[in-house]
Design a protein around this nucleic acid. Structure first.
Lengths: 340, 340
DNA sequence: TTGAAAGCGATACCAG
DNA sequence: CTGGTATCGCTTTCAA
């Protein structure tokens, strides 16, 4: 493999000139630049990453901490990862994976070995063991998800509060007087992921603002449980029922339960789902869907970390960015006829 | 950050001794080893990856070429990735992502920059642009998936031929005389992924061996199309119908189509699916599932590449490893009563 | 069993 | 605008 020395020799310049041609950190005459570039092309030169990292003290690699994910979220996770990797390349960074089962020490390792210049932490939960660790790490990082204590951290997430709000407003505007929120399943709630709370908050807030009555029913993992929950909600419902099912795992069940109770979606009942893995498309069911452009989060997170990595000034100041959700398939919700 | 020099000083030994303690490449007296290890712990020393790579000419990083995946396969893809990353760590390797949208040159780049010691290529298709590239790369690589021309390459994949065979044998053994294979959808077939062909081959072979009649119907993307295909198959069916639906995208549709035609799964008709993203669990539908342990492939692929990377002798000889599928939920297929 | 010292292949400072 | 050279932190001969 040719080295920059070889390039220098062939181009008849010094090694440092070759380096400066690559980095552009000092003016080079058009003539020598051309000679160097030709030599590089001729030798198919590629700079040695290790040597570069050693000398420059930057690896041009970003560590990506991926969570251990239960089946359901895997699809979306994958989307994040590939978009993050692709966007990172656009800024001349590579992505190194840090798996969860190495524990938070994994983060200390890749930073300690100076393998990475910064970190992106995915799926941050309310009380995440990785958070205290990254606080003490000498590299910038950006979190996807918002931990309980996030002072001084850069976080980005979908705006779940707004999502909850929008769901209720949508239904209230159509004329629904009662809206049932099917909660996340217990396993998720117990993980204390912050977004559950935030979604609830948005729902309740919009309920108060619009006057819609909000019924909360727990997320159930079985169809029987779901049917009971739904029946229960229907009893307390005034007018045409409406449901909000933010968790993907519940959506199939809710749809099935409503079917079993003889309610036709988009006709007898409105359903709004969130974060749907394209349930609407997949099953061709009339649902209103509220969702986030996942790529938007991914690209933004890379922007943020790259900014911290390249901006020489201003060490990582706190930041909290929320991505706005959007409606899709919106026509399938119904406008109840006035009930009296 | 402390360097090995600092460790050496603190331990009162030379820098080379520190290095040898870490690598174990030469005997060290118990006494000095202890002194060095203590010093390392005391300083929380971590070796600088760039320097190490530069000096040793090995980065301890494996490049993982991830494909651009359509939604459906994303979940399983994610499983591969995290298991690969975790297993790699067990052998002291890290994983660097190489996205597809950098093209095959992405592979040349990471190898050329000596960022990686070897490559794992995911989702290799029948005629894959990356294959000719890696052939000329000076590092070992392992492919997941089997390209048309694979002489001299190390490949690993699920044994789709055997899977096809097992599906038919299962149904034939139960007494089905006619078996309908619902093919992959056109988009997949056109990509010339090898496994489609291999699955077919297994199905036909087992059909011939068992005497079961095999009907092929094309994979359809719409429910109407699927219903027609199913109806068509039923006309040609003798005895109790049985279906094999290897592609996940078709499975929902097939189940729905059968429902619409009034056929009850596990009672009027047997269905065997393959590569199911746990459709059976998700929908609680009585299906027999044949599947692969995805983790098995992932772990094996890491073993293979690590072997090539550490075995000083024997440069990458060709290899083709097929992972055996297994049945799940098997009881839901039916044993047809003798028809005359 | 250990130490000294010469690289590995870039970067970046100091001169000119 | 360009060249010489010290340096980054570790590995690995060569000598003892």
């Amino acid at each position: 493999m040719p080295t920059s020395k070889d390039v220098a020799r062939l181009a008849g310049v010094s090694q440092s000139t070759v380096s400066y041609v690559m980095s552009g950190r000092r003016p080079i005459s058009e003539k020598t630049r051309k000679r160097v570039e030709d030599a590089m092309a001729q030798l198919a030169f590629q700079p040695n990453a290790g040597a570069r990292a050693l000398a420059s003290r930057r690896s041009q690699v970003i560590g990506l901490a991926i969570p251990f994910v239960p089946d359901l979220h895997r699809g979306s996770m994958m989307g994040f990862i590939s978009v993050i990797a692709a966007s990172a390349r656009q800024s001349d960074y590579d992505i190194l994976l840090v798996t969860d089962d190495e524990g938070p020490q994994g983060l200390e390792r890749v930073v300690g070995q100076q393998l990475v210049d910064g970190l992106i932490i995915m799926q941050v939960e309310g009380d995440d063991a990785r958070v205290p660790v990254i606080r003490n790490l000498p590299v910038p990082s950006v979190l996807i998800g918002i931990p309980e204590k996030h002072e001084g951290l850069k976080c980005i997430d979908a705006d779940f509060e707004l999502a909850g709000q929008m769901c209720v407003e949508e239904l209230a505007k159509l004329g629904h007087e009662t809206v049932t929120l099917v909660n996340w399943q217990d396993a998720v709630v117990r993980r204390r992921v912050n977004y559950v709370k935030r979604f609830h908050h948005g729902v309740d807030k919009a309920g108060a603002a619009t006057g819609a009555k909000i019924i909360h029913v727990p997320g159930r993992a079985t169809i029987a449980g779901m049917e009971k929950a739904v029946a229960n909600a229907l009893e307390q419902t005034k007018g045409v029922p409406a449901f909000i099912a933010p968790e993907a795992a519940n959506q199939d069940l809710l749809v099935e339960a409503l079917n079993n109770l003889g309610l036709v979606l988009g006709k007898d009942v409105s359903v709004v789902v969130n974060c749907s893995d394209s349930l609407a498309e997949r099953q061709r069911i009339p649902l209103t869907t509220i969702d986030f452009e996942p790529d938007q989060v991914s690209r933004r997170v890379v922007q943020m970390i790259v900014h911290d990595l390249t901006e020489p000034t201003s060490r990582s100041h706190e930041a909290l960015e929320l991505i706005r959700p959007v409606f899709k398939h919106r026509k399938s919700t119904i406008r109840p006829r006035p009930q009296r």
